[in-house]
Write a protein that binds this DNA or RNA. Structure first.
Lengths: 139, 139
DNA sequence: TTAAATCATACTCATTAAGTGTAGATTTAA
DNA sequence: TTAAATCTACACTTAATGAGTATGATTTAA
């Protein structure tokens, strides 16, 4: 399950990509996307630290996309907020971690299955970018 | 992410399917699959209540699959233990629930995306059964 | 200098995850 | 019939995570 936090992150970014304004204060994003403002601040912070958005302080400051919407992939956003896509860590490509109780990883049926699940998810989330959610409303 | 509980459930069922014994006491499953026994009892209970396994009490009792391994699908096991596959409820087919903050569900980009993710996951988990994990060790 | 904004840290509060413990019921071989 | 091995039910614990809040500092344009 996606956390609310990740859902909010996606909603906020979609909103930012849809507006052609270069910069939006978090308050406006919060209102437009129906997200608790302070929580959104946390989220935007995390996205900023990971190079998804950038910010300008002071009055008339705000947040803006750090890259083109066509270069921001949805899988990466989810990874930043919720961690790896894979259902279990030993099936993650970006955050691999060995199972403690696994005797023979190469033969582990569960891992093979979950690798397939991970790849299926990645096939959707790492192929699509923010732009796809804006440009193609009927997708 | 899959919970430990769901992972244990899958490990236990795989072990049961692999052994050709008709019945296994939970203690043996716990040892073989490296699962805390009491926790496994809870899990087997839940699987029994959902028609995945059945049990026989008394000395020489134990648990056994309630259906053929080829009829037990992995998606269903995960749904029983962890709930719906879909990343958000409004994208679930088996446990649909409306988003509270959604103005126009049909146009919601996020939902369409997550429906695709759900279908990708289902494409793996609802197509494969326990038998696949036993019969096809190199899959 | 002040108002509006971001930035940083720390805190709360409820729920879930991951088990454990205790007590009792059922079965069946001996 | 009884002891051993099991299942069954329910309550409890302990830690982590989720979903936010609160407070205060810093920046910047006017």
């Amino acid at each position: 399950m996606l956390s609310m936090k990740a859902k909010y992150a996606l909603k906020a970014l979609i909103h930012m990509a849809q507006m052609d304004k270069p910069m939006l204060p978090s308050k406006q994003i919060a209102e437009a996307a129906d997200i608790p403002q302070k929580f959104l601040d946390n989220i935007l912070q995390e996205l900023r630290q990971n190079g998804i958005v950038d910010s300008k302080r002071g009055i008339f400051g705000g947040y803006f996309l750090a890259k083109k919407a066509s270069e921001i992939f949805l899988g990466d956003i989810i990874r930043i907020i919720d961690g790896p896509l894979a259902p279990i860590r030993c099936a993650s490509l970006t955050a691999y971690q060995k199972c403690e109780d696994c005797r023979d990883e190469a033969a582990c049926q569960l891992r093979h299955l979950m690798l397939d699940v991970r790849n299926a998810m990645s096939g959707v989330l790492d192929k699509r970018c923010l732009q796809d959610l804006v440009a193609n409303p009927s997708l």
